[in-house]
Design a protein around this nucleic acid. Structure first.
Length: 728
DNA sequence: GTTCTAGAAC
DNA sequence: GTTCTAGAAC
């Protein structure tokens, strides 16, 4: 308790009392209770109704408060006031005859949410699941008031009985009674945002219920509620204020074999999502250690600033490792927070069992084919993880380009999962300087450093995305998935093999087998429209925007955004992305150029649009077509989850990436996975999750967040100049 | 009661 | 791909 002696009793002073709390924390009730029994005259200034019963703004509240005080009334400021900005201005109303108090209703988020969701007809009109999202967002951004903000007295209430006491205190204040100055009500650690919010988002609830026994430790966020908010992940995780990271100090190298991470008094301390990673490219790939160490430290510094509540651990088997000592020295020099980044000597496959260090995510220095074996870390991880990792990897991707990373959720059958608590392995491929291996850069360190930076960026971003995604990445339940899948493609069960409706990521060996169309029986009658147009454009002149020898352009019949056109290849037998081979590179580039031209034309008409060009991994309509689609997704035709996810998950393959992959590997990487299309609905800008399509659409109609980094890279988005893309 | 999803038919 | 609709979710 921090009592200031300067308050004097028995002097007639007015009070300006600011309520601080999320919706549902009981601010209005507080005011009402006090006003009911107080002998002082009170005025409640409520932003939700200040404008003739409608919501007003802060300025109106300020002037209304000032007026009431001038009138000799005591004032409650009944609005959330959760951040400094919201509170600013009100303390200035205080003075010799006016004390300014704050009552912080810091009740459990769960309680606020359930109250807010339940209530109807509240003045702020925050109801239903949306309210849960709002409450969470507010609580994550909250900045508690301090005396230095200009308050004479602050009362913190963390329980309903605290609130009751405060109500009684203020109710009992007669006109001549004054309360002592200072801070009251012990404030413990920052309240955590409620995990229960997930219950408002159906999909997210499912894994918890259905897989709690099987997968309990996969959900590392269960011990870290702050990671769970699906509405505001970016703000939480990419927050730059790191004061939330209540991590215990942990010195570099204090964790070595046999040591145990202390759990301290912070419930989630022991389970801060941690990424263990080996040094990429310095072993078999013979990358220069000095340069690699520089890049590691640079990238860790960058990401540990961006990510709150996560840790990075560089792991190497040997104590005398050159790369470890280089990195340690550079990290110390750069004053990297040893709680967020440290090095560890030990086997990356036994971090918990032998090192006492729980890392939910480990990185693997993979090879481009994502195959086990070889040696070093790759062989060790595949061996330790068992065949489960191999099949799970196959399901996610079949090859990896240098500079890229791919996350693989580890099936619960894997020993790495059960023994070490590893939930994900992130395969990452760096540059290669070893002439014995593919893609040797021949000591071109300009290129090499660039790729290594990309590799770490991709690794850390993938890690961040796993942490953000929390429970949604659940392990594959091996048995039922495949059979389920074949049901979907009626009429084609017998040719599962090669066309783009095949079951999984396309097999590398399969790409050259098909092409004459004879194997392609998967297309229903309704799927032929584009094919017909491509074969006989002259019959469809009215519907077409452009006809040339190799492509035609048309408006999508059911546009999923304000602008949505298709660039349709006219090549016979080229039905989908899976059919694309090296020979089609020229066509792909041409389709991209035509698509760009149209995007630019639309941008000329409406500069606020943003376009993305790409292919569906498994299109519904026959005949290869490139989607050119504006990112507003403002369309009555966007009706269901599949519509959304087909444009906003990895199912959508950016044209630029496809061209890259085909030129490097002769084929495009496909993410033809039902799971992608049924993923929870997330805003493509701020990544917030939404329980259904109408809610999502209402959110995206006003979301102004900038696009996620990966979309800003490599020209994936097409927009008017001045809106800068990150080039990498 | 209304809203929303998801499966079947086309 | 869409439409229709039963029934689940709210």
């Amino acid at each position: 308790m921090d009592v200031d002696e300067t308050s004097k009793p028995n002097e007639e002073k007015l009070l300006l009392v600011m309520l601080v709390g999320a919706p549902g924390s009981g601010k209005s009730t507080f005011c009402e209770e006090v006003m009911r029994s107080s002998t002082r005259p009170w005025v409640r200034v409520c932003q939700d109704i200040i404008k003739n019963g409608k919501a007003g703004n802060k300025a109106q509240c300020l002037s209304s408060a000032a007026e009431a005080l001038k009138d000799g009334k005591n004032v409650f400021i009944d609005r959330c006031n959760l951040d400094r900005e919201q509170r600013s201005g009100f303390t200035e109303l205080g003075g010799p005859q006016i004390d300014v108090h704050a009552i912080v209703l810091d009740l459990p988020a769960k309680l606020c949410i359930s109250r807010t969701v339940k209530r109807s007809g509240h003045e702020g009109n925050l109801q239903g699941g949306k309210a849960a999202a709002v409450v969470n967002r507010m609580l994550q951004k909250k900045e508690l008031p301090t005396l230095s903000d200009g308050f004479n007295r602050i009362t913190f209430c963390q329980t309903e009985s605290d609130v009751k006491v405060a109500i009684d205190t203020y109710s009992a204040l007669g006109p001549l009674d004054n309360l002592p100055y200072g801070c009251f009500g012990q404030k413990s650690k920052e309240a955590k945002v409620q995990v229960d919010i997930m219950k408002f988002f159906k999909k997210a609830e499912a894994p918890v219920v259905a897989e709690s026994t099987e997968n309990c430790s996969r959900n590392f966020t269960s011990q870290n509620n702050e990671m769970m908010d699906p509405c505001n992940k970016d703000i939480e995780i990419f927050s730059s204020n790191s004061d939330k990271a209540n991590l215990e100090p942990m010195n570099v190298e204090t964790i070595s074999e046999g040591s145990t991470v202390s759990h301290g008094d912070n419930a989630f301390m022991g389970d801060v999502p941690t990424l263990a990673f080996p040094s990429i490219s310095t072993s078999d790939f013979q990358f220069d250690h000095e340069k690699a160490a520089e890049i590691i430290v640079e990238k860790v510094a960058e990401f540990s600033n961006k990510l709150v509540n996560v840790r990075f651990v560089l792991v190497d088997l040997s104590r005398g490792s050159k790369i470890l000592s280089l990195v340690k020295a550079k990290a110390a020099k750069k004053h990297l927070d040893p709680r967020k980044f440290f090095t560890h000597v030990g086997d990356i496959t036994c971090l918990r069992s032998k090192g006492g260090l729980h890392c939910a995510v480990i990185a693997n220095a993979a090879n481009w084919r994502l195959k086990p074996g070889g040696g070093g870390v790759n062989a060790a991880i595949f061996k330790a993880a068992g065949p489960a990792l191999e099949s799970a990897t196959k399901e996610r991707a079949e090859l990896l380009l240098p500079g890229n990373a791919v996350a693989v959720p580890l099936p619960s059958s894997s020993p790495l999962f059960t023994r070490e608590g590893v939930t994900h392995v992130i395969h990452v491929l760096g540059p290669n300087m070893n002439p014995q291996r593919p893609d040797c850069l021949n000591n071109d360190y300009n290129k090499g450093c660039k790729i290594l930076r990309e590799a770490y960026t991709s690794l850390f971003e993938t890690f961040a995305s796993i942490v953000r995604t929390g429970t949604e990445q659940k392990s594959k339940r091996d048995a039922d998935h495949g059979s389920e899948k074949s049901k979907k493609y009626k009429g084609s069960q017998d040719d599962v093999e090669l066309n783009c409706t095949g079951t999984k990521v396309v097999n590398i060996d399969s790409s050259n087998k098909k092409s004459d169309g004879s194997l392609n029986k998967a297309w229903g009658s309704w799927a032929q429209a584009l094919h017909q147009i491509a074969m006989h454009p002259e019959k469809h002149k009215d519907e077409l925007l452009e006809i040339s020898e190799d492509v035609v352009v048309l408006n999508d019949l059911y546009p999923k955004a304000k602008k949505h056109v298709l660039v349709l290849a006219r090549t016979k037998g080229l039905d989908c992305l899976a059919d694309v081979q090296n020979d089609h590179l020229h066509l792909l580039r041409r389709m991209h150029d035509v698509g760009l031209k149209w995007a630019e034309k639309f941008l000329h008409e409406n500069a606020s649009l943003v376009f993305r060009l790409g292919y569906h991994s498994a299109p519904s309509m026959r005949q290869l077509h490139l989607h050119v689609i504006s990112q507003d997704f403002d369309s009555k035709h966007l009706k269901n989850k599949k519509h959304w996810n087909s444009f906003n998950t990895d199912f959508f393959r950016d044209s630029v990436a496809v061209i890259d992959e085909v030129s490097n590997y002769g084929k495009a990487i496909l993410r033809d996975d039902d799971k992608l299309l049924s993923m929870e609905l997330r805003c493509h800008r701020c990544r917030s999750a939404h329980p259904n399509i109408p809610r999502l659409k209402s959110h995206i109609s006003s979301c102004k967040a900038s696009f996620p980094t990966f979309l800003l890279q490599n020209g994936r988005l097409v927009r008017t100049q001045g809106e800068v893309n990150i080039s990498s």
